[in-house]
């Protein structure tokens, strides 16, 4: 039960994009089309779940054991970079169509701050392994949700009559603000 609450909390209440400001770059960059946004969301969810597990293991079984917490950041980012590389090779081998669909987005996941943020969050709050995994999946699903929602709105915005200086990033940020406002209505749903 506690795990289900944790999951919901990271999908809706503590949504990585809309309430914690993590992963804004892909949120603004890859949200022109719904299908691309969905593929990106899937790839991120996948990497996030694995990162949650691996970074937890590295942090608790290696770094803490040998008193090397100062190396935390360097190690985490290396873990993420190599994981992304691995996932890329794996997807290329197993499913070429999926690989083509994800294309350029795969390597870009390395610099998605939602993923490093997740690894740091798990280490900071000292979640256990299972909780970490649930947060990883929940965070990924929440990211996908936000990305697909904004992509849907942006597809409609193409046809709308927007003042010239606000086109593109300006209007997207304002729409995101309104979305974040409506998501903040979920605050208090779970403590």
């Amino acid at each position: 039960m506690e795990l289900i609450l944790l999951f919901i909390s990271f999908v809706i209440v503590n949504n990585f994009v809309l309430s914690q400001f993590l992963g804004i770059c892909p949120f603004l960059g890859v949200s022109q089309r719904i299908d691309a946004a969905f593929s990106m969301g899937l790839a991120v969810t996948f990497v996030m779940s694995i990162t949650a597990a691996v970074s937890w293991a590295v942090n608790n079984l290696i770094l803490k054991k040998f008193g090397l917490e100062i190396l935390e950041y360097v190690v985490f980012i290396l873990v993420i970079a190599s994981l992304v590389q691995l996932v890329e090779m794996f997807v290329k081998k197993v499913s070429p169509p999926l690989y083509r669909a994800l294309g350029i987005y795969l390597p870009l996941i390395t610099t998605n701050c939602a993923i490093l943020g997740l690894a740091l969050l798990i280490s900071l709050k000292e979640y256990n392994f299972l909780q970490g995994l649930v947060i990883g999946i929940g965070g990924g699903v929440g990211f996908t949700l936000a990305l697909v929602l904004i992509a849907g709105i942006r597809e409609e915005l193409e046809a709308a009559d927007i003042p010239e200086p606000m086109k593109g990033a300006g209007i997207t940020l304002i729409v995101s603000g309104i979305m974040a406002l409506s998501f903040s209505g979920f605050a208090g749903l779970i403590k």
Binding site: L18, S19, Q20, F21, M166, A169, G170, I171, T172, L173, I174, S176, G177, I178, A180, L181, S184
Partner: peptide, 12 residues
């Protein structure tokens, strides 16, 4: 969060 998005949108 919403204030941050709105302000930056208006700045841009």
């Amino acid at each position: 969060a919403p204030g941050a998005f709105l302000t930056l949108g208006i700045m841009i």
